[in-house]
């Protein structure tokens, strides 16, 4: 179980609270939607869950324990703009292999082509790059995914394909998934339940 208990966050002691006493639990195999208007801290919650930020108050745990600061994080964050989540000077192969070495089946499941691996990030489209950041996150130790508007920049066809692939992996590996989106129709399609902030 991925749990947030009473997490709050502010950037500094005199800054306003962006997240205030937020609770959430995502079970293995469960897809939870997170919805809400702009400025309610959805992306901050995503970063707190994936330990990109530390909560000012409260705690984030996986199976009751705080994730250690070192080593592979079982909670991985996927963001809206994959181009900012990759090193532009690395080939795609090196980017993915930093986390793990996917086999042909894993690549096929996400529609990632072998030929992409020798390219640099700017030589791929947004949809292709998003598939690669998902592939990278699927390393063996990963158990929870936080998907923050991962298809909002993509066209509807790419969006539907990526979600079909992602939901299949989530089901197969009994991963927990938090899907953050403004699109109520999308969350209605992919989530078992929706939490609104």
């Amino acid at each position: 179980m991925l749990e947030a208990r009473g997490i709050s966050f502010r950037y500094g002691p005199r800054e306003p609270l962006i997240v205030r006493g937020f609770d959430l639990a995502v079970a293995p195999g469960e897809v939870v939607g997170l919805a809400g208007p702009s400025g309610r801290g959805k992306s901050t919650i995503a970063r707190l869950l994936a330990r990109h930020l530390r909560p000012t108050d409260g705690v984030v745990t996986v199976d009751g324990a705080v994730v250690p600061a070192r080593g592979f994080n079982p909670v991985q964050l996927l963001s809206q703009s994959p181009v900012f989540a990759v090193n532009p000077r690395w080939t795609v192969r090196r980017i993915v292999n930093e986390a793990w070495t996917p086999d042909a089946d894993a690549m096929r499941a996400l529609g990632v082509r072998q030929a992409w691996l020798d390219r640099y990030p700017h030589e791929l489209s947004g949809g292709e790059l998003q598939r690669l950041t998902i592939l990278r996150a699927l390393a063996p130790g990963m158990r929870y995914l936080v998907a923050d508007e991962i298809t909002s920049m993509l066209d509807p066809l790419a969006q539907a394909e990526i979600w079909a692939a992602l939901l299949a992996v989530v089901k197969e590996r009994a991963l927990g998934l938090l899907a953050i989106s403004h699109d109520a129709h999308l969350l209605g399609r992919v989530a078992d339940r929706v939490v609104t902030v």
Binding site: D155, P156, L157, A160, E161, W163, A164, D183, V190, D192
Partner: peptide, 18 residues
């Protein structure tokens, strides 16, 4: 038409999920 049908409020390209 394919783009339109792929929207989640339409067929979502046949993605079957509860």
């Amino acid at each position: 038409r394919a783009l339109w049908r792929a929207l989640p409020q339409h067929a979502f390209s046949g993605v079957a999920h509860a």
